[in-house]
Amino acid sequence: MVTPLIELRDVSVGYRHRPVFTHLSLSIDEGRFAGIVGPTGSGKTTLLNTVLGTVRPHAGEVLIGGRPLGRSRPGEVGYVPQLETVDWSFPVTVEQVILMGLYVNRRRLPWPSREERRRVAQIAEELGISTCLSHHIRNISGGQQQRAFLARALINHPRLLVLDEPTSGVDIKTQHDVLHLLHQLNRQGITILLTTHDLNAVAAHLPWVICFNQGVIAEGPPREVFTPEVLSRTYGGELAVFDHQGHLLIAHATTGS
């Protein structure tokens, strides 16, 4: 039986008494690879932060693996921030960024132990970024940057991986590579929750989509969820859905006419 890994029960979240969403109930099964889509300001990042525990709900309950937030094993939830929010001029190398993932282990000494270095080398190898471990984070490609932060999240063997807009700020090829990599991770049993603005990437790559606008509008496989009706309720405007040789394509209705 599949059990929900993430469970939000009647959760209300807001900043300074301005609610972002209220009475939200949502559960995400273990093993899902789910994408949250919705317009800017609809609360996608806020939803992720609620799951991560960095935003505290006014009301309701958030359970991860059946336990209240904050009681989970350190590193059980992996997080990859939006690349645009990273301070690229900060003086750290790829290796040091990955090492930060191990800071959950509360070792006091500043320098890494031999075991820690071994684990960093191993995860870097798995993600194909061994060659740039000693590079400054500014001096690697967008795809490698994405993988460096992915490695930091994966080094603790998380059950859940949360990514905020992994498809933005990188070109279409890197976007494809990243989603492909996430697929592999998902097949190894990691539950993945991400946000994105790219409906076509969701349609092409993701098995599960959640249309979100201050609440869940609809969820399910993209083929079932992406209907003009649901999309118009999520985004307000008119969006057209095409079937192009078995691939789902979403476009502005105006561009279609």
Partner: peptide
């Protein structure tokens, strides 16, 4: 040193990692 480095680099991510 470690938590300071992490939270100086990226405070939000550091919080998620339990710092």
């Amino acid at each position: 040193y470690r938590p300071l480095l992490f939270s100086t680099f990226d405070r939000d991510a550091a919080a998620v990692f339990g710092i």
